[in-house]
């Protein structure tokens, strides 16, 4: 799983550099997020601009990250989601769980 991490405006931003999140790489994603949180980066934004496809295990990995951050009194939000990917969140009602932002500026403005 290719991920670039950057500290911005007090958030740990994870840029997912993959077109696909499925059962082949979702566990890596989950582990990566959990490790960041365990390292003290409890406020995260996952930037999904390049992700064209996510399956149920990918949603599960993000949900695991969200729960882990919440358990540490932090927050995991999502940004730059493509339309079809967003429709998966709508189908599973996970758009009611996650804060989903148009872009990083939108995320920083609303989360600060």
């Amino acid at each position: 799983m290719n991920i670039i991490q950057q500290q911005l405006n007090g958030f740990s931003v994870l840029y997912i550099k993959e077109e696909r999140i499925d059962a082949h790489n979702s566990n890596d994603l989950k582990q990566y997020i959990v490790e960041r949180i365990e390292a003290g980066e409890i406020n995260l934004v996952v930037q999904l601009q390049e992700v064209k496809f996510v399956d149920s295990s990918g949603l599960g990995a993000l949900l695991a990250g969200y729960k882990h951050a919440a358990a540490k009194s932090g927050k995991l939000a999502l940004s730059n989601m493509q339309r079809q990917v967003l429709s998966m969140f709508e189908l599973t009602r996970l758009n009611r769980v996650f804060e989903i932002y148009t872009d990083l500026d939108d995320a920083f403005t609303n989360e600060s």
């Binding site: 399956d55 149920s56 599960g60 990995a61 949900l63 998966m88 189908l91 599973t92 009602r93 769980v97």
Partner: peptide
């Protein structure tokens, strides 16, 4: 069916196929 009020990390695959 998935529990939408208390979502879990797995169990959504068959739901997608059915839906």
């Amino acid at each position: 069916m998935p529990d939408f009020d208390n979502p879990k990390e797995d169990g959504m695959g068959i739901y997608f196929i059915r839906t």
